[in-house]
Design a protein around this nucleic acid. Structure first.
Lengths: 133, 133
DNA sequence: CTGAATCCTATGCGATACTG
DNA sequence: CAGTATCGCATAGGATTCAG
């Protein structure tokens, strides 16, 4: 197969010739959603199984309740997670990945693995630039 | 091989037990950088070959000069792109992917392909939620 | 042509307090 | 427990102008 960079480049050249409208471009649309600080973290945590609201809050200690709710709502409307409310007292709400959400684990895992493998190189590059300045 | 969601979940469970410090977590660090509106777009455009500043500005019509410069600088300090300045008059600056930047094309392509393949499903989910409200 | 500098606005996000 | 409502700040990022 061709080099990934070539394939990626070709793809974008084809796009910008035709429809580069940000509302229609799937990639820009996706990145505008899951490109925030929390979406990917929550998806990664939900990948290990359904979790309750408070469990997610503990798993991602530095998220506020506000952002946890908001991010989960966005992920729900985009079809990544399913929200299951048990009408008990006190209420119990369980979040889980939908099939769509699970399928997203594949590209996300690719990103995570790249980050792990190349983080040292990125840090080295930063150190070089810092020293040059 | 195991399911990607399982692998992703296991990875994050192992992490949050140990070092979930955002300054050290490679994934959070990476996403804080290329999770913005422009980084991935520029990387994708550079994937098709070296480009000059003005060519990139044309390729991504809705980026301001300010953000184009700033984003390219960040990508440069992180070792994704190389900046080649020709000291002519007027100056000519060419940006190209480093080997690190090229290697990132692989996971990015995975993300792009997922977005293309599943965008319709995401839109359908949004439509369902909009109608339910 | 490739920026740097300045100004301004929009909004992401945290903190806190309240509710069923 | 699982939110909602309100406030306020810090930052992303556009528009414009200046410079080498």
């Amino acid at each position: 197969m061709r080099d990934a960079a070539e394939a990626l480049g070709a793809k974008f050249q084809a796009w910008q010739a035709a429809a580069f409208d940000e509302t229609r471009c799937p990639v820009r649309n996706l990145l505008d959603r899951i490109g925030d600080r929390w979406s990917t973290l929550l998806l990664a945590n939900l990948a290990s199984g359904p979790q309750r609201f408070s469990a997610l809050a503990r798993a991602v200690p530095d998220i506020s309740k506000r952002m946890l709710t908001q991010t989960l709502r966005t992920l729900e409307t985009d079809g990544f997670v399913h929200r299951d409310v048990q009408p008990t007292v006190p209420p119990s709400v369980t979040y889980s990945l939908t099939p769509l959400g699970r399928s997203f684990a594949t590209p996300l895992l690719g990103l995570v693995e790249w980050a792990e493998a190349n983080f040292a190189d990125v840090c080295a590059a930063r150190a070089r630039m810092a020293e040059a300045a």
